[in-house]
């Protein structure tokens, strides 16, 4: 628990996180006020479709924060500290998993800020406070993307830490790429187009339904992510291949 506390603290108490927190806060407000306030696909701004759309717009910035956390695992400082920490009896695989858990909690923390801004916006502008239904789009949008990109980040960071930074702009591009519903990790196409194909419900707008193919797609993304995380954390580096200098990205 103590180690987890320190890992989380190292993720959250730094200038990158504070900067991204401010950017997330401002961007959240801008997306809510500029785009979501009009509603998505002829639905209310506080419909699950609009809220889902909001989350898909926020995902790139949240995932960039996540990738920043992953980059800490492969930083120069981390490689140098590892010379000491690797000589302790602590299982390095356990420590790696613990660090991934700390990254996930860090991601949840910044996501809470983003979701919090939206809830505040709904409450202030629309007097809408029935937030219990929002859990489904949150889980559907944030969790698979978090696991998938954490797994990708852990693996590519192992190959070379610079790849993590190269992935960051790609995350933004992926957010705007039109995708079939089943493969739409960010969900922007799904939340925009799906309501238009559904019949009107009792409230004058299509009911929020998630097709089976979308569930399968999200589950696959999450499963691939979990597999990559475990693989990245547990695969051993060959000690006979090491040299005096610790190579960047040998293991986490």
């Amino acid at each position: 628990m103590k180690l987890f506390k320190y890992e989380l603290r190292r993720n959250l108490c730094n200038k990158f996180f504070v900067g991204l927190l401010i950017i997330t806060f401002l961007y959240s407000y801008q997306v809510m006020g500029g785009e979501i306030v009009l509603g998505t696909a002829n639905t209310a701004p506080f419909s699950l479709w609009s809220f889902g759309m909001y989350l898909s717009r926020m995902l790139p910035i949240l995932l960039i924060t996540l990738l920043f956390f992953v980059s800490f695992l492969y930083s120069r400082q981390e490689q140098e500290v590892r010379r000491i920490t690797e000589t302790t009896p602590m299982d390095q695989k356990q420590l790696g998993l613990l660090r991934c858990c700390a990254i996930m909690v860090g991601f949840v923390c910044i996501s809470v800020v983003s979701v919090g801004v939206s809830l505040w916006f709904y409450a202030v502008n629309f007097r809408y406070t029935d937030f219990s239904h929002f859990l489904l789009p949150v889980l559907l949008t944030l969790i698979p993307a978090m696991l998938f990109f954490l797994g990708i980040g852990v693996i590519i960071g192992k190959i070379h830490p610079a790849f993590i930074y190269m992935l960051m702009p790609l995350v933004f591009l992926l957010g705007y790429l039109p995708m079939p519903n089943a493969l739409d990790l960010f969900g922007s196409s799904f939340f925009q187009k799906m309501p238009l194909s559904l019949p009107m419900g009792a409230g004058g707008e299509p009911a929020f339904t998630v097709p089976f193919s979308v569930w399968i797609g999200k589950t696959m993304y999450a499963a691939i992510g979990v597999f990559l995380i475990i693989w990245g954390v547990t695969c051993k580096s060959d000690k006979t291949q090491q040299t005096h200098k610790v190579k960047p990205g040998t293991s986490i």
Partner: peptide, 14 residues
């Protein structure tokens, strides 16, 4: 074991 390597890093933020 207690080990001090020749070159090592510390967590500067702690």
């Amino acid at each position: 074991l207690g080990y001090l390597p020749q070159s090592f890093g510390l967590y500067d933020e702690l």
